[in-house]
Each structure stands twice: as C-alpha cells, then as structure tokens.
Design a protein around this nucleic acid. Sequence first.
DNA 1: ATGTTGACCTGTAAGC
DNA 2: TGCTTACAGGTCAACA
Length: 269
Amino acid sequence: MPELPEVEVTRLGIAPFLDQAKVEKVCIYQPKLRWMVSPQVQTCAGRQIIKLTRRAKYLLLHFDHGQLIFHLGMSGKMRVVDTHLPILKHDHVELHLHNRKKLVFNDPRRFGALLFQAQGEHLSQLQHLGPEPLEQEFTEDHLFVSSRQKTTPVKTFIMDNRIVVGVGNIYANEALFRANIHPLRAANRISQTRYRELRKQIITVLTNAITAGGTTLQDFARADGSPGYFSQQLNVYGRNGLPCINCHRPLKSKRIAQRNTFYCTQCQR
DNA sequence: ATGTTGACCTGTAAGC
DNA sequence: TGCTTACAGGTCAACA
C-alpha cells in the first residue's frame, strides 16, 4: 500500500540494513516494469551505498556515481532478508549485499519502477514534482495561488504531483473529509482560509499514518507482508453507506477521475 | 493550456 | 466448482 506514508515507512524499515552496505551483485529477473529497468542499474554492483532517501513516492538509493530510483507503484514491496532465502513469485530485482543480506523488490502488478539517474542527470519523472507535503515548502499560499485557474475537482487537484506530491487516493479522501471540503468542489472555488485548513489536514493525516506505520516498522526486517494497519484510522475511505462519524448520515461514494471517492454530503461542502 | 480518459499488469472477491 | 466481471494504494501519454 504505497502512499507517501507507506513509502516512508518502507524507507525507515530498510535503511538501517542498507546504510554503508556494499552491493556485491545485482540480479534482474523481470526488467519489464512500469518502465524497462535500465541496464545502467548494473553499474551499482561493487559499489557502496551512501544513503536511502525519499522524494515524493520515489525511493532514492545513493551511490557515488548516481542513484537507483525505486517506485512501488500500486503493489510494490521491498524487503531485506538473508541472501540465501529463495526468491518468491513477483520478485523482480535483487541487490545482494556484503552483509549476507539482500534487498528484494517485489511487485505483482508491475506498476512500479527501477531507474538509474547518473550524477548530474535529472530524470523527467523527478523534474516537475511539486513540494513535499511534510516540508516547509508546502505552504497555504502555494496551494491557494496555484488553484486559482483550476476548475478541476479539488480532489484531483491535490492528487496532482505538480501541486503537491505524495497525496494518494486514500489520504486525499481523508484530508478532504477532515477539512469539511466536498471532493467535487472546483479547486478555484475554495477560499484561502479553507486551503489553510486543507493543508493542515493533509499534513496531519500523512503524519499520523507514518506514525501508525511505526508498528509495522518493527517486524519489517523479519517476516514480510504487513497488514493494513492504517485502516482503523480511516474516517471515510471504503465506508460507503456507513454512518458519518460526525453527523451519522450515510457516506456517499462516487468515481472522480477514475478513482473511488468517499464523502459526507452533509459535512463536506 | 487545461481537463479527462485509457493504458499498463496481476490478484482477489463478488456475482452468476 | 468454475467462469466472468469489477476493482485495487499510481502515473503518464494521448486525447478533447
């Protein structure tokens, strides 16, 4: 379940095993992912990992000559396990490490990606990304100003990576509910005051989710496949027909831009 | 330019 | 039980 919080939880979970580790071997079992895995990935063999960072929903594994860039897509997972353990179905790439561990990329739907960005190079995928929602650069002014010409539904607007990164379908739904904003309202028909609240709720929801992911973090290294621990905190997502936690009217659902959307017609305007 | 839709791929659950 | 259909956490190219 890779929204921004899950990607960050993944990063926190595997980073301790990767920091300063040396890559001995790169195994590519399935190069056909979202984009073809670039052959340059092999140049990481024999090199030392510097650090693992995140930008939007991308994970960047830094080397002295460039970065490996992972994206988990809809179904991607990463795990660090003992080198001798067998590969599983949908394991597409392995990085064998010096420390008898390997980093494995698994992705049934193959919407994920593995790219290489040489030092000084700028991949198009990372070029036009908007601000990180949990950094200073994500301001109320930025949201308000960039919405002024947009008639698209506000939900589509906040899921646009050029506006702000990392807000996926679940958290777009949840943040709008908490801000009392109807997901279909045109982005340019929302006041600066309401964008202030929306910004605040996006930050709250993502931060809470990362914190909740901390539980998963602990058993991340051993058994893989952690359950949906966020679900207990969801107010609207997946709750069509169930009572709103505020007004107790049944929640509605509707497709917006091909994505299932949940909201309360009473509380969200 | 902006807004909307289709495509990529597999697994799972629901419906018949 | 088996077959068919709808849907799933994302993103981008190609349309109107």
